[in-house]
Structures are given as C-alpha cells and as structure tokens.
C-alpha cells in the first residue's frame, strides 16, 4: 500500500500537463461556442434589418472617429521608423529608390491593418467590455430584457457593425498617415522627394491596400465580438468588470495577431510583390 503511493503521485504529476491541456482546450471550445452563438444571434437581427441607425452612427463615432488620432499617430511613427532604418540602408547600397516601396508594402499589408486592430482592441474593445460589463453587474442588462428589448440587438449589433464599417476606414486613414510619416523621414534622410512616390507606384498595387483593409474587417469582427462577449459574461462587481476589460483586450490582440498570420498567408502567400 505504501509502495503504491509514490507511484500514484508520479502518475498524477505526469497526468497534470495532460489534464491542463485538456482543460485549456475544453475552455477554448466552450468560449468558441459561446462566441459563435453570439455571432448567430447578432446575424439574425442584422438579417431581419433590426438595426437602429442612431445607435449605429453613435457607435461608429465612438469606435471609429475617436480612434482616428491614435491610429494615425501610431502608423505615422511606425512608418517613420521603418523609413529611418531603410533609407540609410538602401542609400548605402544605391537602392534609395526602393524606400517608398518598402514603406508602402509593409504599411499597407501589415503595419496599418495590425496597428489599427491593436489600437481599436485597446481603445474600443476595452470600452465595449467595460460598458457592457458594468451594465451586466448593475442589472441594466436585466432591465433591458424586462423591457422586452434584446441586449444583442441593442448593444451587440451596433458595436459589431460599427467595427466592421469603421476599421477599414481607419486602415485607410492609417495608410495615409503612415505614407506621410515614411515620406517625410525618407526625404529627410536623403531620398529624393520624387523617388519615394515613384517607388510606391512601381512596386505596389491597389490590391495591397484593399487587402489590408479587408484584413481589418476580420479584426473588427474579432474586437467587437470579444468585447461584447466579455461584457455580457461579466460576473462579480467591479473586479469582474476589470477582469472582463483585461480579457477583452488580451484575447482580442492575440486573436488579431493569429488571424493576421493566416490572412497574410491566404492573401499574399508569402510573396512580397
């Protein structure tokens, strides 16, 4: 009897990682199922045309318009940094004419869409989770239901649609801000001012920009759904709201990066040009 106890303990220790992985997978599947149900319920209202234009416009302003400065600033500086590194490098090797292409391709395909996704996840995703989470713990969601108003229709649908519409627009704004930042720094570093736009025209296609914008539609869906789901699942007062907000940002950003890899693979297949 005593001899079996250490073996049992070893067996339990060996099983622990397996149980851990199993639990994580089970939790992930449950989470995926809950988000899928949320998607289906929101889609039903959209298909029925049960969309309040005033709510939608308000959310487009909150999620989209108010994110313009931070989205523009982050892409402006990020593209400027790329131009700073690559201008010197490319000038040294006599390829200054490629600076515009490097900045535009990295910006349109990756930097602008991902930065917009991350910025909106941090700014709007957290706000969505906090607002809906606070409504949940203060019984405002129950109050909506008691008034025969669906929280999905009133809260989720406008936020999801606003993200779907506004993120591509934000991406376009971010592209413009990034190109401006890249251009200014490249010219400052010695790249001829006419070479930069010529390089962009030669090595990029409108498709690079369109595809970047399409990526942000997926990111917008992720940010809005995770924010709404975390908010609607909030339990436990102020601590619960804080947890939901943190979860919304962390999960959204992780999913944006994972989705970005697959989208990049599907859209561009690893080809630069």
């Amino acid at each position: 009897m005593t001899a079996t106890q250490p073996n049992g303990a070893v067996a339990r220790m060996a099983l622990t990682p397996i149980i851990l992985v199993r639990n994580v997978l089970a939790d992930a599947l449950v989470y995926l199922g809950e988000v899928s149900i949320l998607v289906a319920r929101a889609a039903r209202f959209v298909c029925q045309g049960a969309i309040d234009p005033a709510d939608l416009i308000q959310q487009m302003a909150v999620i989209g318009v108010r994110s313009v400065p931070i989205a523009a600033l982050t892409t402006f500086t990020s593209a400027a940094v790329i131009a700073l590194y690559f201008s010197n490098f490319l000038i040294q090797y006599g390829a200054a004419s490629l600076t515009g292409a490097v900045v535009a391709l990295s910006l349109s395909r990756e930097l602008a869409p991902v930065l917009v996704g991350v910025v909106v996840a941090a700014r709007a995703g957290s706000a969505i989770a906090a607002e809906i989470g606070t409504m949940k713990v203060t019984e405002q969601i129950d109050a909506l239901r008691s008034l025969a108003v669906s929280p999905i229709q009133y809260l989720v649908v406008p936020r999801v649609l606003a993200c779907l519409v506004m993120l591509p627009i934000l991406c376009l704004v971010a592209d413009c801000a990034g190109l401006l930042g890249g251009y200014l720094i490249a010219v400052w570093q010695g790249v001829p001012s006419s070479t930069f736009p010529d390089s962009i025209r030669s090595f990029t296609e409108p498709r690079d920009f369109y595809m970047g914008m399409v990526k942000t539609i997926v990111f917008g869906l992720i940010v809005a759904l995770i924010g709404c789901h975390e908010g609607l699942s909030t339990k436990g007062g102020a601590t619960g709201v804080g947890r939901a907000t943190t979860n919304a940002v962390v999960i959204s950003i992780v999913l944006v990066y994972i989705a970005n890899f697959f989208l990049a693979y599907v859209m561009f297949g690893g080809r630069i040009a």
Partner: peptide, 26 residues
Amino acid sequence: RESMGMVFQYAALFDSLTVFENVAFG
C-alpha cells in the same frame, strides 16, 4: 414581458440616458 414591468433593487437605470430617456426607452 410587454405586459410586465420590473423595478430593480438598485433601480438599474441606464447610466448614459437622462431620466426622460430612461422612462421613454421601452
């Protein structure tokens, strides 16, 4: 639910709406 009303323990008024908008909501 349209034939029922509910008064919550902490009122559960919608924070972002005025009193008028709260009462007019439904």
